[in-house]
Structures are given as structure tokens and as C-alpha cells.
Design a protein around this nucleic acid. Sequence first.
DNA 1: GTGTTTATATACCAAACGGTACATAAATGT
DNA 2: ACATTTATGTACCGTTTGGTATATAAACAC
Lengths: 203, 203
Amino acid sequence: MLGKVNKLRGRPRVFDMDEALDKALHIFWKRGFEGASLAELIDALGINKPSLYAAFGNKEELFKKVLSKYADDNVKFVRDAVKEPTAYKVAENFLVKAAEFLTDSKHPPGCMIVQGALSCGEGAQSVRNLLIHFRHSYEGLLTERFEKAKLDGDLPANSAPKELAKYLALLHQGMSVQATGGATKQELIEISRIALNAWPTKQ
Amino acid sequence: MLGKVNKLRGRPRVFDMDEALDKALHIFWKRGFEGASLAELIDALGINKPSLYAAFGNKEELFKKVLSKYADDNVKFVRDAVKEPTAYKVAENFLVKAAEFLTDSKHPPGCMIVQGALSCGEGAQSVRNLLIHFRHSYEGLLTERFEKAKLDGDLPANSAPKELAKYLALLHQGMSVQATGGATKQELIEISRIALNAWPTKQ
DNA sequence: GTGTTTATATACCAAACGGTACATAAATGT
DNA sequence: ACATTTATGTACCGTTTGGTATATAAACAC
């Protein structure tokens, strides 16, 4: 039980699972779940179909694995944002980091959780529902943070934590749509600054 | 040339073109361009494939015709909004009407121009680009209106019409994503009220 | 070396996809 | 009545879809 992972029996896998997931992420991010064909996936991964199926299950399971990775790697910015000391700084951090992330040229524009299956055929409904769940989930993190801020007196007593969280989530999702339509980082940051003017202040 | 449309030669069409477009709209709205299959379309329209092709061309042409109708029927709310006498009222009207429209149970949630092909395979890129163009187009209407408002002194001299327009468009698109995720009319109106707090005021 | 285990590559599968040929039905013009 | 025009219904098309059967190759255990 000590030591590194035991050398596996059998023929060794010729590709790196993590790199393969990254390549699959890129395709799903750009194409959406339905728009990404297996042909394009195996082409990008440089492996053949049976290897993909043996390693990751079917298309939906591959997407779910990719989604986990995406959430871990890239959406941790929400977990970072809620660590800011004030509600305003949480909002500011969240919006500015979102603007940067959604327009980062190192990956496709927009958020995969928004555009992965916003609308789709019957066969992709479970993926669509999963993405909706993820959206609600990061919205929930913001809600909790603002409820705490309200208790702390950091937000006014008449403020609505859930609505403020939804406001930020909605801005993030709007920025995602804008980013896929060609909006630049500068534009989105500019809009974040406007949006922050709506933030409630302690009297 | 006077009188009604001349009776057409040949066997009369058994379905109403306009009703058929409405039914197709419903499918494309719910499923997106890629997610809507011809099988589902002809089933909803209650006609057979050759009739559909004879009447509307191929899938993409049908989508474009549906999109025209959608834009005419439903997105005229932007043209209405910019008629409001002040920039603030334009924004308020735009956001509240959007909240109502995007959650109206008489049709699928969200905006077809946002979710019709937000991300997609190679074969649907032209549709995707068309939708991006439509989004820029209604954003442009808002920009023009706010440029006028700035000249009129209705918006502060240091305000940025283009960014304010983009802010509203982004909120609309965010509301669309929220609506597809189950957000209610009340929630979106509540968020519109928050968002309006960001609106610049004349000193 | 032999058996076991796991991954690879080729070739294939049924179903669904968007799209069409073709024969027929229903209207009008003469 | 007959030709012309247009829409309909059935049956089909090639391609792409997601997904596998099968045989082989490469590692380890003994």
C-alpha cells in the first residue's frame, strides 16, 4: 500500500488521460455537447474510438469527466471570489475575473457550463440539466456569501442576498454570451464597472 | 392588380404557412438549430418532408424564415423600448419587457437568438454567425438611442453610450440563460430593478 | 516461455441524419 | 374533357451519428 501507484498489468495506455481530457474539453467548450462529434473528438485526441470508449465510457460520460475537470480547474474563481473580505469586493472580484476568464485567448470564448447545452435535442437533456445544476450551484455559493455579509452588517439590512447572487450569476452568463459573440476583455471589464454601480451600500 | 391575391394554380396547400412557421419556431426555440431534427419538425408541423422542403427550402432556410418571423413578432420590444422619452426609461422598459417575454409560458423560456446556436458544430456556423449578427443589431439600436440621449443631455457628458447599450444587451442575454434554467418572471424583474441602480444620473 | 491482463487497430453495426425521386392527387385554364 | 400546375405521400438515398466485435500487440506474473 505504500509507494507510488503500482505498475499496472497489461499493455500500457499510449496517451495521457489528463491531456486527452484537456483536448476533449477544448472541443466540447467550442462545440457544445451536441455539436461535438465523436469523429472530431477522436481526431483531436489522436486516439481511436475503442480506446476512447475503454478509457472514458460513452460520449456523455466523457463530457461529465471533462465537466468535472473544467469545474475544478477553471471555476474555482468563484470559490476564490467569495473569500474576499467584503460583499462589494466579492462582486468586483467575481466580475473582473469572469471578464478575464471568458475572453482568455488560451481557450474558447465563453463558459462551457453556459454554452455546453443551453438548448438541445431530447438525447442531451440530462447533460443540459446537469449544466443547469452547476449554474445553480455557483449561484448558491454567492448567495451563502451574501447572507453572511448581511448578518455581518456588511450588506444593508434591506438587501436581498439571493437576488444579488442571481444578479452576479446573470451577469456572468450574459458575459459568456457576449464573449462568444466577440466581446473583448476590455469591454466586459468596462461593463463590470457599470454593473458594480448597482451594488448596495451601507448608509 | 386590384382585389385579393389571385387564386393560385395547382393543388392547394393543405397547411397554413404562417401556422407552420409558428410551430417550427416553437421547436427551434426549444431545441436550438442543431437540436431540432427534421423528424421532430415535420411531426410538429403535421406535414411530410417533401412538403416542408417545397415550402421552405432546407433546414437552414426554414430556420432563417422562422428567425425573421421571430424578430418581427417578438423582438420589436427593442424598437418599442427606444421610443421611451428618457434613457433611463428606455433601459427600464427594455429590461422589464425582456423579463416578461423571456419567462412567458406561452412559448419556450429564453431568447431564440441567444440559445438558437450559441455553440455548435461546423455545419451550423453560418446560423451561429447570423444569430451573433442579430444580437449586435439590437445592441446597435440601443447604442444609437443612448448616443442621442447623450447629445440631448439626457445622459451625463461622461457616459459611454456603447457600453451602456452593451450592458443592457448583456443583461438581456443573461436573463435568457437564467430563464432557460428556470428563473421566474418575478426573479428577473427583481434583478432588473437591481441592475437599474447602476444607471448613470444627471448631476 | 506461457498465461493473464489491458490497450490498440481495423472493421463493422444499426439508427438517425438531412435531403430527394417519383408517382399521384387536386386544383385552374382553355 | 384535357392539359397544366402545384402539393402530397411513400419510399428511398448517401452520409454521419454514437457505439462494438474481434483480432492483435504489449506489458506483467509465474
